Simulated assay, not measured.
Amino acid sequence: MATMHDVARLARVSVSTVSYVLTGARPISQATREKVRAAMAELDYQPHAMARGLASRRSRILGLLLPIDERGMGATETAFVTGAASAASAAGYHLVLSPVDADDLDGLRRLASQRMLDGALLMEVQLEDDRVAVLREAGVPLVLIGRTGDTTGLSYVDIDFDRTVRDAVAHLVGLGHRRIVYVNHSATTIAEGYGPALRTRDAFAAAMAEHGVEPLMIPAEDSAAGGRAALDTAFDRAPDLTAVLAMNESAVFGILSGLAGRGLTVPDDVSVVSMVTSPQVAELATPALTAMTSPGSALGRIAVEALLCHLEQDSAPIHQQLLPCTLEVRGSSGPSGRPTGDAAGDDEQETQPAAALPRDGGPRGVPARYSRGEW
């Protein structure tokens, strides 16, 4: 097995020069750096990671802090991880997944105090997320994949939920749908302040108001059973619904089975659109799901690149970027075919259009009772 001395001898440089090339501790000319790297390649030299870390005072390890419950990770979440891992590897770093629970602040403090991580990526971000303060106090550079309510001084990448929801609603309204139900994450998740659940809730109300249509949101547990229960609630409140918009992959499959159990076909009777979904998940359904495809892999990559800028530059600029999901039309959405209360003249389920409701402080003209989560 080749050693650093072997590399130095073949490259005709000092051992310290080889060390500087590996660690970046001192500037080395491009010609010398290429000569050392050519010698390393010829000898198949593999630097000792621990020794290299000690010399540079860096571990070359990035932590991906992603709370994982009993559901594990689906294909959509995995895309964020693989995108981040690929970018870290390309830069000579290792990405380590740490499933520290969002409420386990003591566990996070222990992890940060061990100085194993050069930097951290934070996922499943809440609007008020105490993990940010813990990492800042520990001096761990961080980038959020998601956003807190106050993003001052924080680098983040996130999905543009406003545009994503507007595009999804526009797709369904353009097909003639007027009774659209949004199936969100669970009531508990919303109450805990999970950013995507709250942002899509408010964006849905705003988008529906722009089209003069009453918004109806139903929370659902992240399971097939939760999807079926949410569908039952939706039909209780809007028997003439013609479309379901969902941001809950586990629940979507329960929604599809629930519709079939009612003798309704997709999309002839009810259209279904899934938001923040990977093509792999969309293709599992029958029919394949029309989806707002998640840019997860790109967000993971950009987050790592932003974090590396903070590690390599003392005064790196704050990076804040949003990417929308992309509409991919498959077999689960089509023109509205079922008569609604508007079309049939049945006013039993009629409600006042969102555009005519009192506007007393909600975002973008949305009634404040919606933005406060009272629906």
Rank of each mutant, 00 (worst) to 15 (best):
L135V: 06
S294H: 06
R110K: 04
T277I: 09
H94Y: 15
V366R: 01
A291T: 01
D202Y: 12
G212A: 06
T242F: 06
D150L: 02
Q352S: 15
G72F: 03
V36G: 01
G107N: 10
L97Q: 00
G53Y: 04
Q126T: 14
S59D: 06
D106W: 13
A316Y: 05
T82W: 12
D106P: 05
P335Y: 11
D6L: 02
L259N: 10
D101A: 15
A285I: 08
R60N: 14
R57Y: 15
L62Y: 03
L299N: 00
A282W: 00
S315D: 15
E374A: 10
L259I: 03
A230Y: 01
D130V: 04
D69A: 09
S336K: 14
V81M: 06
Y45N: 03
E34C: 07
H171K: 05
A243C: 08
G226E: 13
P287C: 00
V13Q: 00
R131T: 00
Y20V: 02
L322D: 06
D347M: 14
I159D: 00
A112I: 10
D162S: 14
R131Q: 00
P287L: 07
A187M: 04
P287N: 03
A203K: 02
G362S: 11
W375F: 13
P279A: 04
S16A: 14
E374F: 11
I28G: 08
V15L: 05
S250F: 09
D222F: 14
L111D: 00
R166T: 13
M1P: 11
F204L: 01
Q126W: 12
G176H: 04
L322C: 11
A138N: 01
L97R: 03
Q114C: 11
S56D: 05
R262L: 04
D360R: 14
D130G: 08
T76N: 02
A356T: 12
T286L: 10
V244F: 08
G226Q: 05
L256Q: 13
G300F: 01
A25Y: 12
Y194C: 00
M247C: 08
Y370F: 08
E312W: 06
E210L: 01
G212F: 00
L43C: 12
R228N: 06
L117Q: 02
A203W: 05
